[in-house]
């Protein structure tokens, strides 16, 4: 039960959506773009969000496409995680997306929504970061395409009114070796399917030539791919054991210390999981 009112708009084009946003913002309605809406509804119910207007982008054609063309995979931001998972156009993305919430929820949660989520974890982002995906954003100047790693720092850096339209992934990358693991606070990670719950640690890794790209969630209070961590881990002159042992010193922020896992424990899991992942990719 959302205790306050908001207005709902369902534009059919990006321009229309952007125009609505500007107009509603000017009226002080604090509009929000709405895709799956699961977070807007649940946070509004708890008074953690107060939009006075929501703009549903699900009917905008560009946000809804899923195609493979000219060596590129293009995924609309309004595609649900289930649709992406089932299409299996990018297996690592399927794995990571398949760990968000639960199956029924993924019928509603969208890729764009997961990237823009306020929850610290955002598993789908991991696959997009390690694959050097590009993101297409609609703004005042029209569409722009940028590397996700350039605009994702803890959160996706968007100007007010900008819309995430699509993610573009080089199809080459969807065919290289990869792996990914998530552990929750409960003791049942052995089942690949038992993954409901926030991660204590979650890692996606992808091997391109001799380099392994890593992205992490559950370690710090935001998902990240860090140049420092990655170049340290890929340093060929040090043995893996030693690198993994020291990895905590290279992290971009403090390790999360909360009820799902203490910082010490997360570090322990991080190291175990990294060993396991390296074994799988290098083994």
């Amino acid at each position: 039960m959302i205790p306050f009112d908001f207005a709902y708009y369902q534009p059919s084009s990006l321009a229309e959506a952007g125009g609505l946003f500007a107009e509603l913002a000017a009226q002080g309605k604090e509009p929000m773009y709405y895709a799956g809406g699961t977070e807007i509804i649940s946070f509004s119910r708890l008074y953690q969000l107060f939009p006075r207007a929501v703009i549903d982008i699900k009917k905008i054609a560009e946000c809804n496409m899923l195609e493979q063309k000219n060596g590129k995979l293009v995924i609309g931001a309004a595609k649900t995680l289930s649709q992406i998972q089932e299409s299996n156009v990018f297996p690592l993305l399927s794995w990571c997306s398949g760990r968000v919430a639960d199956h029924t929820m993924r019928n509603k949660i969208t890729l764009g929504g997961n990237i823009c989520s306020r929850i610290p974890y955002r598993e789908a982002v991991l696959a997009l970061l390690v694959s050097d995906s590009e993101i297409i954003i609609w703004g005042k100047q029209g569409l722009k395409k940028v590397g996700l790693n350039q605009v994702f720092h803890q959160t996706l850096l968007l100007e007010p009114g900008e819309i995430v339209v699509q993610l573009v992934i080089d199809q080459e990358v969807t065919r290289v070796p990869f792996t990914s693991t998530k552990q929750t606070m409960d003791g049942l990670v052995h089942y690949p399917q038992d993954r409901i719950g926030y991660p204590v640690v979650s890692i996606a890794a992808l091997k391109k030539k001799n380099q392994i790209n890593f992205a992490f969630s559950g370690v710090c209070s935001f998902p990240f791919r860090s140049t420092e961590v990655e170049s340290f881990l890929n340093n060929p002159s040090l043995p893996w054991d030693e690198k993994i042992h020291q990895v905590a010193e290279k992290l971009p922020a403090e390790i999360i210390n909360d009820m799902e896992g203490s910082a010490d424990y997360r570090e322990f899991v991080l190291k175990n999981m990294l060993s396991d992942i390296v074994k799988r990719l290098e083994g």
Partner: peptide, 24 residues
């Protein structure tokens, strides 16, 4: 039930208070 330092309840939701799920 997890309580914070001030006795505030930290996990009053099924998202953070975990139950056994199907197949576990």
């Amino acid at each position: 039930c997890l309580y914070g330092e001030g006795g505030e309840r930290k996990n009053p939701q099924l998202r953070t208070y975990h139950l056994m799920r199907f197949g576990e």
